[in-house]
């Protein structure tokens, strides 16, 4: 098993939806998508954002874009216009999730590194 951070094979974007934040994670490659699809579970994301996301996490799949979309409920301190947070709209949560580390099998890591870093 090997540890790998999302920043090594995905990018992301986040924003606000009321008091919820959305965090979209996009794999650079198809193989990268199969890995986030397998390992980036609701529980894993909820655990990672412990103390930030105070509600539940919902996961949606967009295999056509090699992407997952997470809704983090009760995360923005009351929502964009009410929140006293510096990042009231959750803009930096996209970069936060790129620090999430998952443990994958060696053969999966090989497939990731064999692929060109350029988008196919």
């Amino acid at each position: 098993m090997k540890k790998i951070k999302l920043i090594e094979f995905t990018h992301a974007r986040s924003g606000d939806k009321g008091d919820a934040a959305n965090v979209g994670v996009i794999a650079f490659t198809r193989q990268g998508y199969t890995i986030i699809d397998k390992y980036l579970t609701v529980d894993r994301v909820k655990q990672y954002f412990d103390g930030i996301c105070l509600g539940d996490v919902i996961r949606y799949e967009l295999p056509n874009l090699n992407a997952l979309n997470f809704i983090l409920n009760n995360t923005l301190g009351g929502g964009g216009t009410v929140s006293t947070k510096l990042d009231a709209q959750g803009k930096t949560l996209a970069s936060a999730i790129l620090g999430l580390e998952i443990e994958i099998e060696d053969k999966e890591l090989n497939l990731l590194t064999l692929e060109s870093p350029e988008h196919d």
């Binding site: 990018h11 924003g15 979209g24 996009i26 967009l62 090699n66 992407a67 979309n69």
Partner: peptide, 18 residues
């Protein structure tokens, strides 16, 4: 403009993608 820049915007502030 590439697939990655456009994909990021497609994911911006969406809920249920379906």
């Amino acid at each position: 403009v590439n697939v990655e820049t456009v994909s990021e915007q497609l994911l911006y502030e969406i809920g249920d993608p379906k």
